[in-house]
């Protein structure tokens, strides 16, 4: 029964609001940081080159993305280090860092007065 109802209300397809959320999350972070996906890829490649001068990393697993946290934007990177040959007993290390992009002006005094 509920199947028929669900079909009647086209429950089967991905809900359009969910798609809207995904698209907006992506586009807002790009708008706010003024960093296009292409520029981000370029930057990622450059950063990897720099890191490679100092340590061995698992390049295929590097993940770098922009993330919304409240009204702040973060550049978040996961950069797994490759297993070291000299010290085979050690667990693989991992560099992880996050940078705040400078788009949102640095307001010091913030938040407070509860509104509603």
């Amino acid at each position: 029964m509920s199947n028929i109802v669900d079909r009647f209300f086209s429950r089967k397809d991905q809900r359009s609001a969910k798609t809207a959320m995904e698209r907006l999350r992506f586009v807002l972070v790009t708008d706010r940081s003024q960093l296009s996906p292409e520029k981000l890829r370029e930057m990622q490649a450059e950063i990897i080159e720099v890191i490679k001068k100092y340590c061995r990393i698992d390049e295929s697993a590097v993940e770098m993305k922009l993330e919304l946290r409240e009204r702040e934007n973060y550049l978040v990177a996961d950069i797994p280090l490759a297993k070291s040959v000299e010290q085979p007993h050690e667990e693989p290390g991992r560099i992880a860092f996050s940078l705040q992009t400078s788009n949102s002006s640095s307001k010091l005094e913030e938040e407070e007065e509860d509104s509603e």
Binding site: F9, S16, A17, K18, A20, M21, L68, E70, S115, E116
Partner: peptide, 20 residues
Amino acid sequence: RRGDMLSVEDVVSLLSIKLI
């Protein structure tokens, strides 16, 4: 409710400002 419009919560979470 049908999932075809952003909810108020969705919009607030995207924009992260106070709702009046």
